[in-house]
């Protein structure tokens, strides 16, 4: 996976977020403040702009630049959280021009660690961690087993999707939905839903490569 692969990934995320903007906002209206779709759409539009204005030369630089743009433009909790995730992943990839599946898995582990350190959420708190953590585990397992990359990323996306669906019966303990207490039960977490889009885009980028 080279720089153009990672640019394709980020572009696919931006496209998916734009397409799902209203859906994400509706999920957020149910248990939050009805802006998740609009915020991420604005953020990834800024990411696209940043990557066009100053095209990064390595996969790590693509992700670091994307993360910085998210922190600078999104606001809310999702800006710093997703921004930190991409920056940590970018840092983990280092200066390498070509990323192995092992390095990709390690990078996503770094992303998860960064989000958890900043936001303090654990699995089961009804946050994006509920989609991200199982996806990271699924990729780690698939890579260890030597699974073909496209299959590994399909399994990763499926794990994220399952994790997001599993947030429905949970009571939120972190983030804005936590203010609802038991009334947050019965709704999918919008952050988990947007995390699924990120992994769907990753699988898509691998399919095109």
């Amino acid at each position: 996976m080279d720089t153009s692969f990672f640019l394709a990934w980020i572009n696919a995320i931006a496209t998916a977020v734009q397409a799902e903007r209203d859906h994400l906002t509706q999920l957020d209206a149910a248990i939050g403040d009805a802006d998740h779709g609009a915020n991420l759409d604005r953020g990834f539009a800024a990411v696209r702009q940043a990557l066009t204005d100053a095209p990064p030369q390595t996969p790590g630089a693509v992700l670091t630049a994307a993360g910085s743009a998210l922190i600078r433009k999104v606001g809310g909790a999702s800006g710093p959280l997703y921004g930190t995730a991409f920056r940590q992943m970018g840092r983990s990839l280092g200066d390498a021009a070509e990323i192995t599946p092992e390095a990709l898995a390690a990078g996503l582990e770094a992303a998860l660690a960064g989000i958890q350190k900043l936001g303090g959420a654990a699995e089961g708190d009804k946050t994006l961690v509920d989609a991200l953590a199982p996806a990271v585990r699924a990729l780690g397992r698939a890579v260890q087993d030597g699974t073909k990359l496209t299959d590994a990323l399909a399994a990763t996306e499926a794990a994220a999707q399952e994790g997001a669906r599993a947030t429905v019966p949970l009571e939120a303990r972190k983030g804005r939905a936590s203010y609802l207490g038991p009334r947050s039960v019965g709704h999918e977490d919008p952050g988990a839903a947007s995390t699924v889009l990120i992994f769907a885009a990753l699988r898509e980028a691998a399919g095109q490569a």
């Binding site: 802006d35 922190i71 606001g75 809310g76 909790a77």
Partner: peptide
């Protein structure tokens, strides 16, 4: 001021 109901950014 951030966007509507969204915190401002560090900048």
């Amino acid at each position: 001021p951030g966007e509507v109901f969204t915190s401002p950014v560090p900048d």
